[in-house]
Design a protein around this nucleic acid. Structure first.
Length: 648
DNA sequence: GAGAATAATT
C-alpha cells in the first residue's frame, strides 16, 4: 500500500522531503508559498481520506449516461492561459491512499466521471506534488489527459513540464500523433518550456514508429530551443538510424552527440564500430577503439568482436587476424562470440589447424563451445576437405547430446555433397526430420544442388515440384539451383520451361522472377515483367535491389533512355533509392559515355548527406578508369583522400 | 527514458 503523506506545516518541510521522494518523479518546481498562509497548517486534519470506493456517485454504473467525453483533440489555442500564481493554497491533509485513488480513477469512463471523482479535492487543495504523482501513475492516455485538464481547469494549477511529459508519453504510446502535437502546442501556449525529456519522449516515440523524419524535425526544434540532448536521446536516434540501415544518419547523430559535449559510453561506441563498418568506413571503425582509450572508455570484448565482425563481413581476414593479435596484447579477454568469429576467420584464411586449436582450447579458457562454435568448425573442416574430422565432430555432437540445429544439418549435407556421398546427404535429410528439425529453404537448395551434381535429376525435380505444390514460398536461390541443375545436364528445355514459368509469376514473388531472369541473361523478359509489375504495383514500390538490377539489365540492352526514364520516374514517385541504385545509374551514364550527365548526377549525390561518399568516389573513379580517363579518375580519388583527411 | 558482436544455400 502506497500511502502518500505530506506534512505541509512549512515551506522547509516541503523542501526537505524524505530522501525516498527525491528519487520520485517530483521534479517540478514548487509553487512559491507566501508566509501568511502557513497558519492554516494548524487546522489541517490528518484524517486518512478514503476515496469513496463504495460511493455510488462515482461508480461507473450509476454515472449519468453521458456519451464518451474523453478529450480527443487538444484544447484550442485560445484556451491556453497561464494561471496567475495561486493565492492562498490550503495545504490540508494529503495523506490519501494513492493506490485507492488510482484504482477509482481507473474505473471512470469519461472525463465527467473523473471530474466528479476528483471534485471533493477541488477546494481542498491537494498539493501539486500529489496531483503530479497521481498523474504519473496513470497509464491510460485519455484519463491522464483528463487529469491534466482537471489540474489546469478545475484545481487551477499550472501543470508543470513534468506533468505534460507524463501525459505526452501516454498519448504517444497510444499513437495519437495529432493529440501529441496539440499537447505540445498547448504546453508552449501556457508558457511551459519543453525540456529534454519532452523532446526525448517525442523523438524516441516517433522514431520507434519508423517516422524518422518526424523524429529529426523534433530534434531540430529541440536544438532551436537550445535544449541539449543527452546520451540516451542520441543513442536512441543512432539505434533508430541503424535499424533503418541509414548509416550516414547514424554517423551524423554520433557527431551531434559529441558536438553537444557528451562523452559516448561503451555501448554507444560499440554500436558505432558496427555502424562505421556497415558504412564501409573501416578506418573510422578502427579509430573508434583508439578514441575510446583516449577518452577513458576501455574497449571490451564486444568492441573487439564487433570490429572483428566488420572485417569478416568485408572479407578483410588479415586485418581481423592482426586485430585479434592486438586483442591478446592488451589482455582483452575472449568470450564465446569472439572465439566463434575467430574460428571462422582462421577457416577463411585456410588455417584449419589454428581454427581447430582455438576450438579445442575454449574449454580450458572456461568457455563452453555452443552450437555456433561446432557448426563453424564443421564448415572449416569441410572446406579444408577434412571430411573425417567433420564426420567425427558431428557424431561427437550427437553422442554428447550437444544441440544440433538446421544449420548443423545443412552444413553436414554440404560436406557430404562435397565428398561425393550424396546418399549420406539424403539420409541426413531424413534423419533431421526424424529428430524434429525442420528443413528450410537452404536445406532444399543444398540437397537439390547435390542431387543435380550427382545426376539425380529426377529426384531433384520431384522434390522441387513437391515444394511448389506444398505452398512453401519458393526461395530465389531454390529456383536458380533447379535451373542450374537442369542446365548442367543439358536439359536446356526444362531450364527454359522454368524460366518461362517465371513470366507468369502467380506463386512466385515477382521480384524473385525478375532477378532470376536478369541473372540468367533473359533481360528482355526480366524488364518486361518489371514493366508489368510496375504498372499494377500502384503505390507499392519494388525494392532497391530490383531497381538496380533492372537498371543494369537496361544497360546490357543498351536501353539507356528506358533506364533514365525509370530512374527519374521512380524518384518522382517518391521512391527512396539505396546508394546502389544511384551508383548503377552513374555507371550507365558512364557506359553511354555521357559524362555530362554522369558528372551532374555525381555532384548532386555528393551534396546529398545520405550517400556514402567514399563509395561514391570509388564508383565514379572506376567509371573514369573504364573509359580510360585516368586523369579524372585520379582527381576523384585525390578529392576523396583530401576529404578524408580534412574530416579527421 | 536506451542500446552492442558470431554459424548454413546458387
Amino acid at each position: 500500500m502506497c500511502t502518500f503523506s505530506l506534512s505541509a506545516t512549512s515551506m522547509h518541510v516541503l523542501d526537505s522531503l524524505p530522501s525516498s521522494s527525491s528519487s520520485s518523479p517530483f521534479s517540478l518546481p514548487l509553487l512559491p508559498l507566501t508566509k501568511p498562509h502557513f497558519h492554516t497548517a494548524t487546522t489541517k486534519s490528518r484524517t486518512h481520506f478514503s476515496l469513496f470506493v463504495t460511493s455510488s456517485a462515482s461508480s461507473p454504473s450509476s454515472a449519468p449516461k453521458t456519451k464518451d467525453v474523453w478529450r480527443k483533440t487538444p484544447l484550442k489555442s485560445t484556451q491556453f492561459h497561464k494561471h496567475p500564481k495561486r493565492q492562498n493554497p490550503l495545504f490540508l491533509d494529503h495523506s490519501l491512499d494513492m493506490d485507492e485513488l488510482v484504482q477509482s480513477i481507473s474505473q471512470t469512463q469519461n472525463e465527467q466521471e473523473l471530474f466528479t471523482l476528483l471534485s471533493p479535492y477541488k477546494d481542498r487543495q491537494l498539493s501539486i506534488r500529489f496531483m503530479v504523482s497521481l498523474l504519473s501513475r496513470e497509464q491510460d492516455y485519455q484519463r491522464s489527459v483528463a487529469i491534466l485538464d482537471w489540474i489546469n481547469d478545475v484545481a487551477r494549477y499550472s501543470p508543470s513540464v513534468f506533468a505534460y511529459n507524463v501525459v505526452l508519453r501516454n498519448v504517444l504510446r497510444a499513437k495519437k500523433w495529432e493529440l501529441a502535437h496539440g499537447l505540445f502546442d498547448e504546453m508552449r501556449g501556457r508558457g511551459v518550456s519543453p525540456d529534454r525529456y519532452t523532446y526525448s519522449t517525442l523523438i524516441t516515440c516517433f522514431g520507434k514508429e519508423g517516422m524518422f523524419d518526424s523524429a529529426i524535425s523534433w530534434l531540430q526544434l529541440m536544438e532551436q530551443d537550445r535544449v541539449s540532448g543527452d546520451l540516451v536521446l542520441y543513442s536512441n536516434l543512432i539505434e533508430l538510424a541503424r535499424k533503418l540501415c541509414d548509416y550516414s544518419k547514424a554517423i551524423s547523430m554520433f557527431s551531434r552527440l559529441k558536438n553537444a559535449g557528451i562523452v559516448p559510453d561503451l555501448v554507444a561506441y560499440n554500436t558505432m564500430i558496427n555502424v562505421f563498418g556497415k558504412a564501409k568506413l573501416f578506418r573510422e571503425a578502427r579509430l573508434v577503439i583508439k578514441e575510446m582509450r583516449e577518452v577513458g572508455v576501455v574497449p571490451d570484448t564486444v568492441s573487439y568482436s564487433t570490429l572483428l565482425n566488420v572485417y569478416v563481413e568485408n572479407e578483410k581476414f588479415v586485418e581481423a587476424l592482426s586485430l585479434f593479435a592486438e586483442m591478446r596484447e592488451v589482455d582483452c579477454p575472449l568470450d564465446l562470440t569472439s572465439c566463434n568469429i575467430m574460428i571462422d576467420v582462421y577457416g577463411q584464411l585456410d588455417m584449419a589447424k589454428e581454427a581447430d586449436r582455438l576450438f579445442w582450447s575454449m574449454r580450458k579458457m572456461g568457455i563452453e563451445p555452443n552450437v555456433v562454435s561446432y557448426n563453424t568448425l564443421l564448415r572449416v573442416y569441410g572446406e579444408a576437405e577434412l571430411f573425417g574430422e567433420a564426420i567425427h565432430l558431428f557424431r561427437l555432437m550427437q553422442r554428447k547430446e550437444i544441440e544440433q540445429n538446421v544449420v548443423t544439418y545443412n552444413t553436414m549435407m554440404k560436406i557430404y555433397g562435397k565428398s561425393l556421398e550424396h546418399e549420406k546427404a539424403t539420409n541426413l535429410l531424413k534423419e533431421m526430420q526424424n529428430s524434429g528439425i525442420e528443413p528450410n529453404a537452404i536445406t532444399y537448395s543444398t540437397i537439390i544442388s547435390i542431387w543435380g551434381k550427382a545426376g539425380k535429376l529426377d529426384r531433384a525435380a520431384i522434390l522441387f515440384q513437391k515444394l511448389r505444390s506444398s505452398g512453401i514460398e519458393i526461395d530465389q536461390v531454390l529456383y536458380q539451383t533447379m535451373i542450374v541443375a537442369y542446365e548442367r545436364v543439358g536439359l536446356v528445355a526444362h531450364a527454359k520451361r522454368l524460366l518461362h514459368e517465371l513470366k507468369q509469376p502467380d506463386n512466385i514473388p515477382r521480384e524473385t522472377a525478375i532477378s532470376i531472369l536478369a541473372k540468367a541473361g533473359r533481360i528482355e523478359e526480366a524488364t518486361w515483367i518489371f514493366r508489368q509489375a510496375f504498372e499494377d504495383w500502384g503505390r507499392y514500390f519494388p525494392n532497391s535491389n530490383v531497381i538496380a538490377l533492372v537498371l543494369n539489365a537496361y544497360g546490357k540492352l543498351r536501353e539507356f533512355e528506358m533506364a533514365d526514364a525509370l530512374y527519374q520516374e521512380m524518384q518522382e514517385e517518391g521512391c527512396v533509392f539505396s546508394d546502389e541504385v544511384h551508383f548503377q545509374m552513374l555507371s550507365l551514364y558512364g557506359a553511354r559515355k555521357d559524362f555530362n550527365m554522369m558528372e551532374s548526377l555525381f555532384e548532386k549525390l555528393d551534396s546529398d548527406s545520405n550517400i556514402n561518399k567514399k563509395e561514391l568516389h570509388l564508383v565514379v573513379a572506376a567509371i573514369y578508369e573504364r573509359a580510360n580517363r585516368l586523369d579524372e579518375a585520379s582527381q576523384i580519388m585525390n578529392r576523396m583522400k583530401e576529404r578524408g583527411t580534412s574530416k579527421s
